[in-house]
């Protein structure tokens, strides 16, 4: 915990040294909300969304955008921060400390993940308060689902970090998965409007199940028992991906220590 707090403290201090960063983040959030608000007004009431999700388009998109940004942070921050540490030369110093590779990489990503989480909470709060989003949040079910979704995406993030540690380049699979998530998983439009073949493809993405369950909890107030099928799928993703991620990270560290490429950018 002390390690995590040390990284968080350092990264908050660095972020605070860029004085306008918070203002830009707030402005970005407001612009996003405004765009979706007027888009929703243009579209008007949609039967599909009302029947399937119990909400208007603005509320539907609000949950989608907020949650997707959190999941994306989990999926990309480990590799992103690792790559930064490779290029600024700090990775060697960090890995020379008496901690496992996992702890160091997880701590490196703590700040961007925490920021994305706060941003998502802020978006939902502003969307509800300023733009009148129609939310019926079931907090327990929402929290459990979000936790399971972040767990599954954390494993994907660590797989990506293992790739970056080995090859010193961004992981193409992560970008492909990120693109597929935004195209198919129902972030800003419902999966039901996709052609049937793509709807099947969407079921292979963890984000589809996460968004479905989180919308059910946030928009229709559904409890754990109602979102259980999605939770089961997310748990299965985690069970399959975590051992793979742990193995990939161990092999990546061993590879760079054998090849002597740890200090290379």
């Amino acid at each position: 915990m002390r390690l995590l707090l040390a990284f968080l403290r350092r990264d908050i201090l660095i972020a605070a040294s860029y004085r306008l960063s918070f203002a830009f983040m707030l402005a970005g959030g407001l612009i996003t909300l405004t765009v979706f608000y007027f888009l929703a007004r243009t579209m008007g009431e949609t039967a599909l969304l009302r029947e399937r999700y119990g909400a208007d388009y603005f509320s539907f998109a609000l949950v989608g955008v907020a949650v997707a940004s959190c999941l994306r942070a989990m999926q990309t921050s480990f590799a992103g921060r690792l790559r930064e540490a490779q290029t600024d030369g700090s990775l060697e110093v960090l890995l020379a400390a008496p901690h496992s590779t996992f702890r160091v990489i997880a701590s490196l990503a703590a700040y961007p993940v925490a920021t994305a989480f706060l941003r998502a909470v802020g978006l939902i709060a502003l969307g509800w308060w300023l733009f009148g989003a129609d939310l019926h949040l079931e907090p327990f079910s929402f929290t459990v689902t979000l936790g399971l979704a972040l767990l599954a995406f954390g494993a994907l993030g660590l797989l990506s970090a293992a790739f970056v540690l080995t090859f010193k380049r961004g992981d193409p699979f992560t970008y492909a998965l990120d693109t597929a998530t935004y195209l198919l998983a129902g972030v800003v439009y419902p999966v039901e409007v996709l052609p049937e073949a793509l709807q099947w493809a969407a079921k292979l993405l963890p984000a589809t199940h996460a968004l479905s369950a989180l919308r059910a909890s946030a928009l229709k107030g559904q409890g754990l028992s109602e979102v259980a099928p999605s939770l089961l799928v997310l748990a299965l993703f985690s069970l399959a991906l975590w051992p793979l991620a742990a193995l990939a990270l161990t092999l990546a560290r061993r590879h760079v220590e054998r090849a002597g490429t740890l200090p290379h950018a």
């Binding site: 350092r10 600024d88 030369g89 200090p263």
Partner: peptide
Amino acid sequence: LSEDRGLSSRL
């Protein structure tokens, strides 16, 4: 170490 940079320049 020789290539040891690792200090955050903004802090």
